[in-house]
Amino acid sequence: MTTAMPGFRPAKRAGLSEEVVESIRQAIFDGVFKVGDRLGEAEIAHQLDVSRGPVREALVLLRQEGLVSTELHRGASVVKLSVSDLLELTTLRTTLETFAIERAATHATAEDLAQLESVIREMEAAVAANDEHRLTQLDIKFHDGIYQAAKHDRLTNAWNTIRSQMLLFLLTRAAANRDYLTIAVAEHTQLLEYIRSGDVAKAVAEIRAHASGAYDRLVLTYPIADRANFPTLTDETAPSSPAQ
């Protein structure tokens, strides 16, 4: 009999791949499975008390989500994201969030603003408890709120395609950068104030600076050899010069 893995919650209803997806996803975010860890179908099925079929389906879905990679003769494992992956995700995130905050600053309702304010209060509590993991999850929740306030379903869908990988990166940043606890609340409070005031120009400038700062801190978590001569986010997002 295999001992249950601490922190790995069983699926609520056996046989449903969606439940299995959520269980594995949360186990990755909670650090039960580390980056590069193998995700064995048989072991996971046993832990969750389901057959291997739903686990296999769940791993396919998590691969599409960007949290799992597969290799011949090795099977599935938690994805290892490179500096190149980070650059692609951050440039895409910056583009999406620029549009999202433009719309949020002009479309946010009182309910949207109250929800964002509530997340900041939760972030303050996480900082007081020195809980970086919780703070990181609330960071993503705040950005979810910006997309909600933008009132643009397809934009939200685009965000959801990179959301899990961004959270995985942010969890890495929180673990490696001790300044995260000291800056997170202030940065998100400033974003909220620009949304609340409807100042589109300042909101856009702040969200771009926010994404750039996160990128710079995340790059520092990689070995020097992996980030040597790598472009800055400013290089990648600067407008192209017109053809002569």
Rank of each mutant, 00 (worst) to 15 (best):
M1P: 10
T2S: 11
P6D: 08
P6E: 09
F8Q: 07
R9G: 00
R9M: 08
K12P: 00
E19F: 01
A27F: 01
I28D: 08
I28H: 09
V32C: 10
K34V: 03
K34L: 14
G36Y: 15
L39T: 03
A45Y: 07
A45V: 08
Q47P: 04
L48K: 00
L48I: 01
G53K: 14
V55H: 13
E57R: 15
E57Y: 09
L59Y: 02
V60Q: 11
R63S: 12
Q64A: 10
H73C: 00
V79T: 13
K80S: 13
L81H: 11
E88W: 08
E88C: 04
L92E: 06
R93K: 15
R93H: 10
R93T: 07
T95Y: 04
L96Q: 05
L96C: 02
E97Y: 13
E97F: 12
E102S: 15
R103C: 08
T109Q: 01
T109L: 10
E111F: 02
Q115A: 14
L116P: 14
E117N: 12
E117C: 08
V119G: 01
A126V: 04
D131F: 03
L138D: 03
F142D: 03
Y147L: 11
R154M: 04
A158M: 12
N160E: 11
N160A: 00
T161F: 07
I162S: 03
I162P: 15
I162D: 12
S164Q: 04
M166L: 15
L167H: 00
F169M: 15
L170A: 10
R173T: 01
A174D: 12
A176W: 10
N177F: 15
D179M: 05
D179L: 13
D179H: 11
L181V: 12
L181M: 11
A186T: 14
Q190H: 08
L191V: 05
L192F: 08
R196Y: 09
V204K: 15
V204A: 07
A205K: 06
E206K: 13
G213R: 07
A214G: 14
R217T: 07
V219S: 02
T221D: 06
Y222I: 05
P223Y: 03
I224N: 00
R227G: 01
P231Y: 03
D235V: 00
T237C: 06
A238I: 02
S240C: 03
S241V: 01
